[in-house]
């Protein structure tokens, strides 16, 4: 397998200038006849996605995720920087690059409702340059692969939202693209449809070697699917690391210890490897001690022994010890909050 990235953004920037007539100016909140606004939607974003990799782009609403997807699919031209798909500069050779990319955009009607899934695949296949026997075979394979075989000859307007979304993914895959861009692929779907789509995305990347870029608000989707995650905030990439590493660096390393009574003041002072001690609100009969530890594994281990030893020496009884589980949600909040404060 080639190691050349299939998706590559190099300091990509997008600034939108909008003109408004007879509307309120945000800074003064006064109604004016005409004013201009400048929105920095994407701010010097750089990342690569390798073949077979699923890359997640996380960010709050309006962070610039969809603009990045649109830049990659040639629908929006970057103000500066470069965007490459399979080694092709999208700004310069857009039509050539489009031959290697399949896109599912959020909130758009990607299929024609009076047609059946197979007819839709034939139509969009033609639009993407696929024809003849190959098109028929691929359409049959895709409806089978995604689990729409039973609905292959039913008009799209009778399909459920999840089935329509599956069809949208099939349409994106009809030209057998090397790159798949999925903008919020599981939004509004029930658990079963969401699960099934997630499984297929993983299969496409692992078994078929496609590069998949997924934008999502759903932390569970990102955590389950993506090998690497970029957190985007106000157009800039706040963090971009493998999911495990993100959880390790930004995640909670806190030990929650439930005791029979509050410990003596300053009992845990001076323990190497302990970053912070907190006593969050809890019933007096069972106080909780929250010990935040340093990232270093060896230091952390020693610190835990020492903390427990000091509790024992102080005559405290342990009611329970739990390690707080890091989730991508807490990481996301931490990263976006850190960015805000900095």
């Amino acid at each position: 397998m080639s190691t050349t990235p299939l998706i590559s953004l190099n300091t990509a920037d997008k600034v939108f200038h909008t003109r408004h007539f007879m509307s309120r100016k945000p800074d003064t909140d006064r109604r004016v006849f005409y004013h201009k606004r400048t929105v920095h939607a994407v701010n010097s974003v750089s990342f690569d996605v390798q073949p077979g990799e699923i890359f997640g782009l996380l960010g709050p609403n309006g962070a610039g995720k969809t603009t990045i997807v649109k830049m990659l699919s040639g629908l929006v031209r970057p103000s500066s920087g470069t965007v490459w798909i399979d080694g092709i500069d999208v700004s310069r050779k857009r039509l050539k690059a489009l031959g290697t990319v399949g896109v599912v955009l959020e909130g758009t009607r990607t299929s024609i409702w009076p047609l059946t899934p197979l007819e839709n695949l034939a139509y969009f296949g033609n639009l993407k340059g696929v024809r003849g026997k190959l098109l028929k075979e691929r359409a049959r394979f895709l409806v089978d692969f995604i689990g729409l075989k039973e609905k292959a000859d039913v008009q799209v307007r009778y399909l459920s939202r999840g089935q329509k979304q599956k069809l949208a993914i099939c349409i994106a895959l009809i030209a057998d693209p090397k790159v798949l861009l999925l903008d919020e692929p599981t939004t509004g779907l029930d658990v079963q449809s969401s699960r099934s789509i997630k499984d297929k995305i993983v299969e496409m990347a692992r078994a078929h070697g496609k590069s998949v870029l997924v934008t999502t608000h759903d932390m569970h989707v990102a955590q389950e699917l993506c090998g690497r995650i970029g957190i985007i905030k106000q157009g800039a990439l706040a963090a971009c690391k493998p999911t495990e590493e993100l959880l390790e660096i930004f995640g909670d390393r806190a030990l929650e210890i439930r005791l029979d009574k509050l410990p003596t003041n300053g009992l845990l002072d001076g323990i190497p490897g302990v970053e912070a001690i907190e006593y969050p609100d809890a019933p007096e009969s069972e106080p909780i001690c929250l010990v935040t530890l340093e990232p270093d594994q060896a230091l952390r281990s020693e610190a835990i022994y020492e903390v427990l030893e000091r509790f024992r020496r102080d005559g405290l009884q342990l009611r329970g010890v739990t390690q707080r589980q890091s989730t991508l949600e807490s990481v996301f909040l931490k990263v976006t909050e850190e960015e805000s404060s900095s």
Partner: peptide
């Protein structure tokens, strides 16, 4: 409005040909 335009724009033959 429906998003069909974006689909057509992503055709490798371009909007004018389409």
């Amino acid at each position: 409005r429906t998003g069909e335009l974006e689909q057509v724009c992503m055709s490798p033959y371009g909007l004018v040909t389409n």
